[in-house]
């Protein structure tokens, strides 16, 4: 464990909590892409099946349980409890355009052709593009609530910190996982546009609005 990975995990946890609080406090999931939340739930479910097969540490197990629990709680909020506030008309990204290539690639490029390993690889590739429906929705509505931008900031920051974690682990432990690193790079690059808007607008107290 190193400082980048720990702060990365905490940033990820913060993002997940911020989203849940935003929906709970405002009793609304306006501006939230349900499709991205479905993809994240699929990412956690397919990646954390090893909860049933191996124990790494209390931290590892408890964080996995928290992530999965929050992911499904968010889906419950978006598609059941606060369904009336879900903006389905703007959440129109075709997720099959993500699932098919990612599914195919996880069979072609993986570390080991075993079910758990292919599911892990699938979850890594899927996570790198899972935010696209959310970013697409913001580009369609042309704006995002400030609390939603904080959610996206911490969500993007987490994988950027993981990139430093992998540099650290390569240097100190000789460990590196090319699949996770390449997918993590893609994932972080997809946020660059948002990071620019977040830093130049939201941090200056302005609302995040895109030239529609």
């Amino acid at each position: 464990m190193n400082v980048f990975r720990l702060t990365g995990d905490l940033s990820h946890l913060a993002a997940i909590i911020i989203l849940l609080l935003k929906i709970w406090k405002t009793r609304s999931c306006a501006g939230i892409s349900g499709k991205s939340q479905i993809l994240f739930a699929v990412v956690f479910t397919s990646r954390y099946l090893d909860l049933l097969t191996s124990f790494i540490s209390l931290y590892n197990t408890s964080m996995k349980v928290i992530y999965i629990g929050c992911a499904y709680a968010t889906l419950y909020f978006v598609y059941m409890k606060f369904k009336a506030t879900y903006d389905g008309n703007h959440d129109t990204f075709r997720v099959e355009f993500l699932l098919v290539p990612v599914g195919g690639l996880s069979f072609l490029v993986n570390h080991d052709f075993s079910p758990l390993e292919i599911l892990w690889t699938f979850s890594i590739y899927l996570e790198s593009v899972a935010i696209l429906p959310q970013l697409f929705m913001i580009s369609k509505t042309g704006e995002a609530e400030t609390i939603t931008t904080h959610y996206l900031f911490f969500l993007g920051l987490y994988r950027a910190l993981y990139l430093f974690n992998w540099i650290w682990r390569f240097y100190f432990e000789g460990f590196f996982d090319m699949i996770a690193i390449v997918a993590g790079l893609v994932q972080t690059i997809l946020y660059c546009d948002f990071f620019y808007l977040y830093i130049t607008k939201v941090l200056k107290g302005k609302k995040l609005s895109l030239p529609a």
Binding site: R5, D9, H12, D50, S54, I56, N60, M63, K64, Y67, H111, D112, S114, L116, E117, W120, Y162, N165, D177, A180
Partner: peptide, 10 residues
């Protein structure tokens, strides 16, 4: 990979 098929990161 620590042990084949085991990933220690979240």
């Amino acid at each position: 990979l620590l042990v084949l098929g085991e990933h220690d990161e979240l």
